[in-house]
Design a binder for these strands. Sequence first.
DNA 1: TTTTTTATAACGGTTTACCGTGATAAGAAA
DNA 2: TTTCTTATCACGGTAAACCGTTATAAAAAA
Lengths: 219, 219
Amino acid sequence: MEKIKVHIADDHQLLIDGIIAVLSSEKNIEVVGQSLNGEDVINWFNKNTADILILDINMPKIDGVGVLQFFLDKKLEQKVIVLSSYDDTKLIKEVLKIGSSGFLAKNSAAENIVEAINTVYNGEQYFSKNIQNKLNATFTKNRVKNKEESNKNAFFSTLTPREIEVLKLIAEQYNSKEISKLLHISINTVETHRKKLIAKLNVKNVVGLAIYAVKNNIV
Amino acid sequence: MEKIKVHIADDHQLLIDGIIAVLSSEKNIEVVGQSLNGEDVINWFNKNTADILILDINMPKIDGVGVLQFFLDKKLEQKVIVLSSYDDTKLIKEVLKIGSSGFLAKNSAAENIVEAINTVYNGEQYFSKNIQNKLNATFTKNRVKNKEESNKNAFFSTLTPREIEVLKLIAEQYNSKEISKLLHISINTVETHRKKLIAKLNVKNVVGLAIYAVKNNIV
DNA sequence: TTTTTTATAACGGTTTACCGTGATAAGAAA
DNA sequence: TTTCTTATCACGGTAAACCGTTATAAAAAA
C-alpha cells in the first residue's frame, strides 16, 4: 500500500510530536518531515516532497500565509491543510484563496486530523465542523472558481507592503507622528494608511488593528 | 507499580490528544482527565484528584492563572505544570508565585513533558531549557522563599478582576463611553481603570493593552 | 484596629485618533 | 494606451484617548 506522505509545520514542537504520536497508529499515513518555522518548510520542499503539508498559520520568520504564497508561485503539487488557533473567517477565506485545501482548528479532536488528511488526499476540501458553519453560502458557491478569478473579485482586501509596515509600527505602540518620522512621510499619509487599514480589516479602531497584527504574527 | 495520575487542560483538543498519544507509551503515567477550559478544570478537581495537572495558560472562561489562584485558595495538593506558547518571563514569575511547580513551553519536544511529569512528581521544579535561561539569578535566589514573602515583594503588579473586565472590553474594541454603559459606571471610572492598566502593564497606550490581552488570552 | 487595596468618581487640559473628502504622481496591469 | 493600484499629502472637524491629580467608601489584609 502506498502511504500518504505528510509534512508537519508548527512552531510548537510539542504539538508536532503529539500529531506524530496520533498519526503513528494510522497504517496508511507516514510523517516524512517537520518544520518549526516557515523558512524551514520552504527549504524542505525545495529538496523533498510530501503529499500533504499540515501548516500552522502562526509561525516565526515566515508565517503560514507566506509559505502558501511561496507555493502558489512555484506551482508545487502538494495539498495543504492549514492549522490555526484562531477560527477567523477572514483568515480562512484568505488561505483558501491562496491555495490551501483544508482548514483545521486546533480545538478539533485528533481523529479529525486523520479525516482531514484522507479527505484532502482524495482531492476534496476539508473543514473543521465549527469552521464549516462560519463559511457563508456566498463564499461556498464562489470557491469553485479558479485562482485568477477568485483573486480578482476577492472577498476581502489584501494589505499592501506599506500598509503592513505601518500596521507593524502601530502594533509596536508608535503613534502617527512617530511613525511619520520613522518612515519619513507626512503624518497625513500615516493617517491615510491607518484609515485604509481599519477599512480593509473591517475593525473599529486601533485596538482591532493591534489584535489583527498579533493574531497574524505581524508583531 | 503506582501510576502517576495526570490531568491535561488545554483549549486545543488536538494538543490534548497529542499529549495523550505521547504519554500512552509511558508505563508509569496515566491520563485520568482532560479539560478544555478553566471552569472545567475546577469542576473536575472538585470531584476527582490527580497527581499532576498540565495546565495551559491561554484558555477561555477562566484562564490558567485563574485556575492556579483557585487552587491556591483551596490548598489542594496536586502539582501543576504550566504550558504556554509565550515564554514571557513576567508570566513565568507570576505562575510560579501562585503555585505552579513547572513551566513547559509549547516549543519543547514531547520527551520533555515526560521528564517534566517525573521531575515534578518527585517534588522538584521543572523548567524548559529555554526558560531556564530567561530566569535571572535574582529571581532564582528569591523563589526559595515562601509564598507569603514572594507575594509581598512582587516583581510586577497583578490586575484586579475589575481591571481584567475593563481590559477585556477594551480589547473587544469598545471605547470608554461604551464600556461605561456596559458596566453601568461613570466614564471617568473607566478612564481611571484604563490609566491603571497602562501603568501596571507598563505599556504606552491602548495598543499595548490590546496586545497584552491577546497574548494572555483575555480576549 | 489600622493600613492597604479596590472600585468608584470628577475635572481641566493636551494630544491623538478617527471621519470624510479630495487630490496627485508613479508604476503596474490590462 | 488606458485603467487600476499604490503611496503620497491636505484640511477641517468631532470624538476619544491620555495625563495629572484628587477624593471617598467599602472591603480585605496586616
